[in-house]
Amino acid sequence: MGNSAGFLLGLSTGVVCLAYCGPVLVPYLMGEAKSIYGNIGSVILFLIGRLVAYLMIGLLSGIIGSRLLQLSALKPVFMGIIYILLAIMLVIYGLYRFQEICLGRSRLLGKKSTSRRWSFWLPMAGGFATGMNLCPPFLLAITESIKTGEIAGSILFFFTFFLGTTVYFIPLPFIGFFRRQQALRIIGKFAAILAGIIYLYKGIIMII
């Protein structure tokens, strides 16, 4: 029962997931301006990050999830920290390799290997951070997974929930259609910085 419930919940609320993850993922994809295949890679890494976050939360919600939710004082602090982490990541991403755009070459990154490492970890970390975002579908999923009453059931619930929401991420790699437009890369970088500032503000407000 849990498997289909998780999938259906993901399917029915996936649009919201996209709305929450979109401001993070779309600027990233535009900023990277890879080929469609490159973007598929980024989206997959992003989704892996989300999956890891989901599985971890599945595990946690199986053990202490219900307690965490009951501690209303902790909830905003937890969300605030997540928002701040996400914001820092977005701003770093926005500024990272910006010189390359401005001056036609990278000053920050002389070595290709460093670039590859970043382009591997950034989408994954983005996926992880947005996966930890306590958005409404996610809260619902936590509540539902707690009902399963066991750790394995809870993890399985989150896995199927992840599959359901992932359907909505399928069109995103095609943003690579615009890969030749350098302007879109710049816009993506700027958008990431802006989104970072917004999440930083939200995070700070939640904590204080």
Partner: peptide, 17 residues
């Protein structure tokens, strides 16, 4: 000159959300 496009992108998404 591209910054306003980033504002448009973020503002449109945030406003919708």
């Amino acid at each position: 000159r591209w910054f306003s496009f980033a504002v448009l992108l973020v503002i449109a998404l945030i406003s919708a959300m």
